[in-house]
Structure formats: C-alpha cells, structure tokens
C-alpha cells in the first residue's frame, strides 16, 4: 500500500528526516516510536502533505502512485487520513457540516451519489457510537471549546466517517486519560480491516496495549534505527530511549 524510500525532509532548511525507508501493507498496524524531536510528527505531516515541509530526497509510493505529487486534499480523497496531534479549531463551521462536506467530497471522487443532510445524519449517528460521542457535539463548531480528549475523539470520528485506506495517527494518545485512551483505542480497533492500514505515531508504549501493532519502528535523529515486532515496544518501555540513543551513538561513531 505504502512504500517510503530514502525520504529526506526539511523545515526552514533544517533537515529533520534523513533517509526513512518503510513499507506498509494492507491490514497492518505500524507503530512509529522515538524520543522527542526524532522526526515522528514530521513523518506524519509529510505523509499528509503539510506545506511547511520540503522533501529534498527520496520518494513515497502510495497505491502505485507518487504521493509527493499530490495535494493534501487529493491525498485525502485517495484515502490518506491523518489524525492531528493538535486538532485545529474551525470557528463557525459545525462538526456535522465539515464531516458531511468531507464525506461527500470523497463520495464524489469515487463517482458515488452525495448524501443529503438527513441520510448523512443516520450515518453520523452510527459512526459517533464508535467513539462514544454525543450527538450534541455535531452542531458545535469544529473542535471549538472541546477538551483535549474530545478533540482526539473527534479526530477518530472523522476517521470513522471517512474510512481511510491509510490512517496516520499522530500522537493520538497524548493528553488522554486512561478512560479516553480506551475509548479512542476501541474506536480505532473497530476500524481495523484487512484492506486498510494504520501508522501509529507515539511517544509512549501505553496505547500499544490497546492497539496491538504488527510492527514497531524506532525513529531517532530522522532515521529508523530499529524495527521489530510488538515486543520491541515493551523493551523500549523497560529500557527507555537512552538505550536506543547510546546504541545509535555507538553505531554512528563506529
């Protein structure tokens, strides 16, 4: 589904990603872990097409197409979704309005009929259950006045409505208490399917107790320095990132 080859990316002329290689197939969950400043969120934003980042080398092939040539909205309509670490507030636009617009943009792209407000309301009510979200949130402005946990749940609701092929969850677990974490994780698990894939960017192992990854990659200084199965996350939890840092340091100096 996704192949990243030798990806280098900069922001304000500062190189953040220094040669990432990653292959993600349908049905898989990949966790990207790493200490702060290792480039995890940059990778997520480059995949979503954030204009502030410049790709200086390498390529990203998504479903056989060059992802880097696509605008952020094209990527979205083609099934790429990023749950934001800091979801953006959109005053004056209700949650239901945005969700229906986004949903219909995708339907149009697929050559399907758009849903009218009534039809969409039914769909929305059903998807909102996945993240245990009250329908009163639907008439409120997008993320405005939402608590941190509500914002994160709202991101997963958007994911549930848009049903992406490739979902990138950028630190969706940060700032969540244990109950909210469980709700969000349950929602994501219900959306796992053999034909979609998830890249889960996280600093902590905690969420991986709920969303079990097939692969864990450790990012450090813009490179994947280690890959393994779910047990790698536990090892990291136990030993901390210093272990990776010293090991990477040894490799670098060797």
């Amino acid at each position: 589904m996704l192949e990243i080859r030798n990806l280098h990316a900069t922001i304000d002329d500062q190189e953040i990603l220094r040669g990432i290689d990653l292959k993600v197939s349908a049905g898989e969950v990949h966790a990207i872990m790493g200490p702060n400043g290792s480039g995890k969120s940059t990778l997520a934003k480059v995949l979503a097409g954030h204009p502030a980042y410049e790709v200086t080398e390498g390529e990203i092939i998504y479903e056989g197409k060059n992802l880097l040539e696509m605008d952020p909205d094209e990527r979205a309509r083609e099934g790429v979704f990023m749950a934001f670490q800091y979801p953006v507030e959109v005053p004056g636009v209700s949650n239901a309005q945005l969700l229906r617009l986004a949903y219909n943009e995708k339907r149009k792209h697929q050559g399907l009929e758009e849903l009218d407000p009534l039809e969409f309301k039914e769909l929305l009510a059903e998807r909102a259950k996945l993240v245990d979200m009250d329908l009163s949130f639907m008439s409120r402005s997008v993320n405005e006045g939402f608590s941190g946990g509500e914002k994160k749940r709202n991101e997963i609701l958007q994911m549930a409505v848009l049903e992406p092929k490739l979902a990138i969850l950028d630190e969706t677990d940060s700032g969540l208490d244990i109950d909210a974490l469980r709700i969000v994780a349950d929602g994501v698990n219900k959306l796992r399917r053999p034909d979609n894939a998830i890249i889960l960017v996280t600093h902590y192992q905690r969420i991986l107790n709920y969303i079990i990854p097939d692969y864990v990659h450790v990012l450090y200084r813009g490179r994947i320095v280690r890959s393994g199965g779910k047990e790698l996350a536990l090892e990291l939890e136990e030993k901390g990132y210093d272990w990776i840092k010293s090991e990477a340091g040894v490799t670098a100096s060797a």
Binding site: H50, R77, A102, H109
Partner: peptide, 26 residues
C-alpha cells in the same frame, strides 16, 4: 486551518470558502 480542511479532502478553494463562511457565521 486551511491545511486541516485540506487533509479532510476539501480543495484549497473550498477550504478557503468554508473558513470564510465560518468567519462570517457569527
């Protein structure tokens, strides 16, 4: 805000118009 809406599948023009709509809504 523009980027956020675009990652939800709205073209630049539509994202811009929707944000303008949101601005006027008050």
């Amino acid at each position: 805000e523009l980027f956020y809406l675009r990652t939800r599948g709205l073209s630049f023009e539509k994202a811009r118009n929707l944000l303008t709509y949101g601005f006027a809504e008050e």
